[in-house]
Design a protein around this nucleic acid. Structure first.
Lengths: 190, 190
DNA sequence: GTTGATCCATACGCTACCGTATGGTCATGC
DNA sequence: GCATGACCATACGGTAGCGTATGGATCAAC
């Protein structure tokens, strides 16, 4: 039986694994030796690619921030109708089982000096975008930013609930009905 | 100089400290030796009061669950008008700077087998209560539970945002205006 | 004032993880 | 075919935290 030797790793392999770990257990889970075991190498490999653990965490955060932005843009840019777009986002909010798990995990580490600025940037960008979306829907002045804040809070809250008590969230046809209700409620004119 | 000897600790002292740690850093922060140092004793004290670290975590979670319930009841029972009550809760949601920090921290540890059932119970109870509140406001059938879910998700989301980017939340007079907008939006008839 | 229970300190071994030092392997250029 | 650099394993010392063992200390009761 011919065992093909495992190919060597590159920096990005470590980064990908780190992002995964980030989603599962936050910054604490980005641990060198466990990740090495998972990648079936030793930390000898790691310390060749990175200076130390902190560098990996920073790289993972940067990678997540970039991917998250790209992904969001890809999802949103193909839908022109603002209302449809909002529906789609909210739907992905809690139908997508894995979506936002990095978000949720990072919140616990918000006090971490490496995490804080990333979280700040991502949150600010999303809020800006949402506010713009509400302006496009005809909301004016404070109403746009305020409604955007409610909406984004609810969006984030669904991620939290999905972790805390997934059984309490609607599923199947009830989920579809719920999304409609959410959209109707949050897009209703003041 | 007369140094009054520090009084001895009881179980509840450890529990209180553990709840605090829980709020700051989640389950990971409930560590025996650091807590002992903070309480200015050694772990010799701890292992007299508790069998092991897990017992402390369980006790802290139980204590939080109990206090959280009592506190919520105390806050809500003195307000009879449903609308006023909802306003008060949402106001405390992000004006109270420290409120819900255990919530936020626990979400990251939702996968933990000790944490999961507690989180499940607390979430379920709050959602039940909120649904009842919407019924009292005239919402019927699905509308009540659906609106309750949005509301609670937004409520939780504000805790998250407060951690992720407190600077992006309205403050002062803007906060008051925002709460009104939230109440108007979420209590609007379908 | 001795005894017994309560509460805590000290000292120890164990594990997990970080970071370093050093040498080994493998491909590639020449 | 060998030299160089890229990539990785092994082995080591260091720290933090868990849990145990054991011996004080303190106080109440009698």
């Amino acid at each position: 039986m011919v065992m093909r030797k495992a190919p060597r790793l590159e920096k990005s392999d470590w980064e990908r694994a780190a992002v995964e770990a980030l989603a599962k257990g936050g910054v604490t889970a980005v641990a060198v030796e466990p990740l090495a075991a998972q990648l079936e190498v030793t930390k000898g490999s790691f310390y060749w690619h990175f200076s130390d653990r902190e560098a990996l965490i920073a790289a993972a955060l940067a990678r997540w921030e970039r991917e998250e932005t790209i992904e969001a843009m890809a999802l949103l840019s193909r839908i022109s109708d603002p209302r449809q777009r909002m529906t789609q986002v909210l739907r992905s909010g809690f139908v997508g089982r894995l979506g936002g798990s990095v978000d949720a995990a990072l919140l616990a580490d918000a006090a971490d000096p490496i995490v804080a600025p990333v979280l700040q940037r991502v949150t600010a960008a999303r809020l800006r975008y949402t506010t713009t979306a509400f302006r496009a829907l005809g909301f004016r002045g404070r109403a746009a930013s305020q409604r955007a804040l409610i909406t984004y809070a609810a969006y984030v809250g669904h991620f939290a609930l999905q972790r805390a008590a997934p059984r309490l969230l609607p599923r199947g046809t009830a989920a579809a009905s719920y999304v409609e209700h959410v959209v109707a409620t949050l897009l209703a004119r003041p």
